[in-house]
Design a protein around this nucleic acid. Sequence first.
DNA 1: GTATGCTTTCGGC
DNA 2: TTACGGCCGAAAGCATAC
Length: 363
Amino acid sequence: MVRVIGHIDFDYFFAQVEEVQDPTLKGRPVIVCVFSGRTEDSGVVSTANYKAREYGVTSGMPIVLAKKKLEDVDPAVIRMKHEKYEAVSDRIMRLVEEQVDILEQAGIDEAFFDLTQLSRGDYEAARRTAEGLKRSILEAENLVCSVGLGRSKAVAKLASDMAKPGGLMVVSPDSTAAFLDPIPVNRLYGVGPKTTSVLRGIGVETVGQLSLTDAVGLENLVGKKLSAYLLAASEGSDDQPVVGGLGPTQFSRIVTLKRDTRDTNEILAQLSQGIDYLQDRLSASGKSFRTLSALGILTDLSLHTKSRTLENPVKDSAVLRKCATELFSELCRSVNGDFRRAGIRVSELTSIENQSSLNEFTA
DNA sequence: GTATGCTTTCGGC
DNA sequence: TTACGGCCGAAAGCATAC
């Protein structure tokens, strides 16, 4: 049976949550900002509502610049409160989960879902379900979202994107080819700048052109595995499943330092709470990590990292601290300038149950 | 040579 | 004129193994 996959995306999520909580904000430009604490207004815009975007404000823009662009129009400048948005997101995700076969959360403000069983492959039935979803979210939380339906995760995601703001786009199996054909190849999952430029080299700019590419020639160019995937994806027929119950695959903490420095001890002191936080998250989720990375962002905003993968997963806080110290020491030695921001990340997470059963096998 | 795993960097939100 | 976060997962760049 042809699958029915959905993607849901909460529009300008953080700013919209703020609007719902304070209806007097509606109609005004709203920017939700991360303040780094360096100086009064140092930091960036995380999310801008559509009114603010009309004046050229985008996410990632320095707060000072956004304020300048909005100086004549009385913007609401709001400090980001992540826990608040997370609570709203959790409620919405649970609401959606009740109405679909499987839900796969993909970040705080988006998720994939599978409606194949529920709709019995009928796209009109699925459309009604999607409309019901949007309605229930509007009734329960007053929040607008965009939804896309299609035969694969990639198609569903592209469709929800095109449905913004606040719409629903259904790409039936029959209309999939026509929908995908004009889309630039770099919009496909798995296609970054490198692959895009390789494809451009053989005159392939759009997904439609990709689907007409000679399989053998493509294989010689990008390898067997990627070429098979690309050709499947170009027809919307890749079969990546929607997987429920997945947690995050990495935890990280990054801070803006009190002052620029390349002193290992100074950096570690300011990251100390962050390390504790990662330890707490590991414990709370029952995970061990195998890879630890030290991240540093120089004053020119360039990113530098050092990472280490251990032979076996660990959850021990002493190991975490010791490795972090060593990695930062190496990182500081390897760069020329001073760091403005520093962070730490644990990845290659495994749950403790898996680890013990693995030990039984390897013992 | 192709697949796999690790490290580093990139890009989206 | 400049200004500049904190996450996440993906992509690319390698090294090594078969």
